[in-house]
Nucleic acid binder design. Structure first.
Lengths: 150, 150
DNA sequence: GTAAATTCTTAGCCAAGACTAACTTTTTTG
DNA sequence: CAAAAAAGTTAGTCTTGGCTAAGAATTTAC
């Protein structure tokens, strides 16, 4: 049943030009950034609420253990999103603050949209947490339009 | 600075820090299943379109290399979602077929909803791919209602 | 001002998911 | 049917993101 002759000839391209494949690659790429975004967003919230972001608080809110946080923070620091000193609080860099702001914006739009659609607040919060990393700017604009319009 | 214990930790919690942690844990749990769902959905599609699902076709559509597919299929087999023989096509088990069906359903609902909202087909397809794994049954129902209503 | 408790880090383990290189099996093709 | 091509697997590497156990640093409490 090898009927699809067009798909696999001499593979010159290391990256398949298949639009389906591209979509999956984009999703995977988005998935890679999700955790970093979650952390940065959470750090911004903690700083806003408590004046600082301690690893122990991050761990509690993320629902993970302390060493997991340490590792994640190392990575965020490597990526230039936060600054930190050993055994001390975490601070966002300019870049980190920008990302946090962007995330917050997306989160708010998705959340507001879901609630406008008729979803209960708690489910909306949970769904928004998952969805916010996967909505394009275009979709976001439509979500906003809908929420405003009603 | 260490206002944690006095101000917001023990007493007021309108939303206990726990519920945030739970939300994140749920998202992480969803993320863990995403790839398996993508594979199963794709395998079902390939079988439907071509009568069989070959690893080479899966790799092309997923946008990954062959060994990645082999490993993924090992895992799917371990989880009882597919059956396979070495160097042969892949088949869904009853469980795999059920999951594929469920995924397809979610995908369709999200896609239809986004298009009804006014999104172009291509972006809708891309966003649906990312969103479908993160919508609750409740949200799905609202998406359906909206798409039908308009 | 020291001892206890808490917080944070390090070290080491594991599984997933990506890759390349190299090998085996199957299929195609002169 | 034998050689070449394609498909699939294995082996080995890397990174991420979890975890526990144990040790170091800091903070609290007596």
């Amino acid at each position: 049943m090898t009927c699809d002759s067009s798909s696999t000839a001499a593979t010159d391209e290391p990256r398949p030009a298949d639009s389906r494949a591209e979509a999956f690659q984009e999703v995977r790429s988005a998935r890679r950034n999700e955790l970093a975004e979650d952390y940065v967003e959470l750090i911004a919230e903690l700083i806003h609420e408590h004046g600082e972001a301690r690893p122990v608080a991050i761990a509690a809110r993320m629902g993970v253990r302390a060493p997991t946080v340490t590792k994640a923070l190392d990575r965020l620091a490597r990526e230039g999103l936060i600054t930190r000193e050993r055994y001390r609080s975490v601070f966002l860099t300019e870049k980190g603050r920008a990302l946090a702001h962007e995330c917050r914006r997306r989160h708010e739009i998705v959340l507001r949209f879901l609630i406008r659609l008729g979803l209960d607040a708690e489910t909306a919060e949970r769904d928004a947490e998952g969805i916010e990393h996967h909505v394009s700017e275009r979709t976001l604009a439509l979500f906003e339009a809908y929420a405003d319009q009603v």
